[in-house]
Write a protein that binds this DNA or RNA. Sequence first.
RNA 1: GGAGAAGUCGCGUAGUUGGUCGAGCGCGCGCGACUGGAAAUCGCGUAAACGUCAAAAGCGUUUCGAGGGUUCGAAUCCCUCCUUCUCCGCCA
Length: 426
Amino acid sequence: MIDIKLIKEDPQGIIKRYEAKEAYVADEIGRILELDKSRREMIGENEALKAEQNRVTKLIPQMKKEGKDTAEIFAQMKSLSDTIKRNDAKQKEIDGELRTLMLALPNLPDPDLAPGGKENNQPIRYFGEPHKFDFEPKNHVDLCTDLGLIDYQRGVKLSGNGFWIYRGMGARLEWALLNYFIDTHIADGYELVLVPHMLGYECGLTAGQFPKFENDVYWLQTAEDETRRFMLPTAETALVSLHRDEILTEADLPRKYISYTPCFRREAGSYRADERGMVRGHQFNKVEMVQYTLPEKSDEAFEELVGKAERLVSGLGFHFRTVKLAAADCSASMARTYDIEIQIPSMNGYKEVSSVSNARDYQARRGNMRVRRASGKIELVHTLNGSGLATSRILPALVEQNQLADGSVKVPEVLQKYVGVEVLKK
RNA sequence: GGAGAAGUCGCGUAGUUGGUCGAGCGCGCGCGACUGGAAAUCGCGUAAACGUCAAAAGCGUUUCGAGGGUUCGAAUCCCUCCUUCUCCGCCA
């Protein structure tokens, strides 16, 4: 949620800023201002009545002591009380509509972002050189199948399209990646957190995925009266609710967390012919980084997270680039996002392996996550998140970029101690 | 799953024959005194949200797990839900 004060101060300016994100919210903003106005009018009116009620109520014990007749006052107070109750109900309705509208507004894009969608994304850094082969390279699906790393067919047998199985050295390679990531983060001072994979609604609301994207996740509910839970689409959804409704102290910040989880996504309608193999599935593995920071420190934290993701990818020896996303390509909750994209030689262009974002106070306001400063002042924290990293794009890139002429695959040095071998052979 | 107990201000607690309780005390925290400096000690102060206001102060409203109810009036009574603890059962 953004601060409604921003809207009240400069509605036109806010509408303009949203246009960069290709979000056209003039109607919503108009309605918000209308509701806010009538809300404040109602509050003023009703609070005057409540003040009167409180004033009289305080007099009653005294009157009773003095033995005065209170019947008439009680009758008056009863009708006052009824009016107040009616007003409260009306006000609640207005609050509800206002909140719904506010929750639906996306985050404001940072002013320095290029406006518009994907086509305006700006690569800001390149690392390494594109891979060249002096033989006909195979694609990752063939490589993984030939080497017995991934069992695509049985994945489909077990769970349907969009699922695969890591086997043998493939599973060990996957596990090696995750260990390499986690060990690096721990060395950097991040706390490893293992979270539930099934989450309550509030987690999705706080992260900003709900109510808008409720249908993008898998819901679990076996009985009518059972609390609905969803399979987490990313560990961010859990980590960002860790301090929901809490007041942290300034000395607690920054909080730096990482979590490994599988991520479950419906990906409805997003399959493309060129996304074979494990580039897009309903379940993939990811190590997620999340930071809670003081507002003035979030830019610094953002750079740290981008740098960490870049070091992980370059540690594997990949050619990749860092891309500053245009406003409309950032997700709804985020003020800014940088993607890290690697090349999968058999596929066109670059594929995202990490996405680092600053939500600023958007999630903190939704989840009421605050910090008490040394001065005693309380304000919202900033939250940031980034993949560090998702494996499902790394592994295809790894086997393709590291394949040798004989069909075997060289294991990157940093992974060898985890995998136990230097080359994956038939 | 069954039986019982409990959820109060950052933390720990007091507060149930309904009324001057938004709420006492301790710790913590802030400021000050004392000190060469610190500890200890003493004094003062210490919730948030919303509304009013250009802003601050002030004033008002709300909040004692959540929601509803009874009442002129609810931390205190009633109902529903959530959570925690203890015992029993079941189970990886």
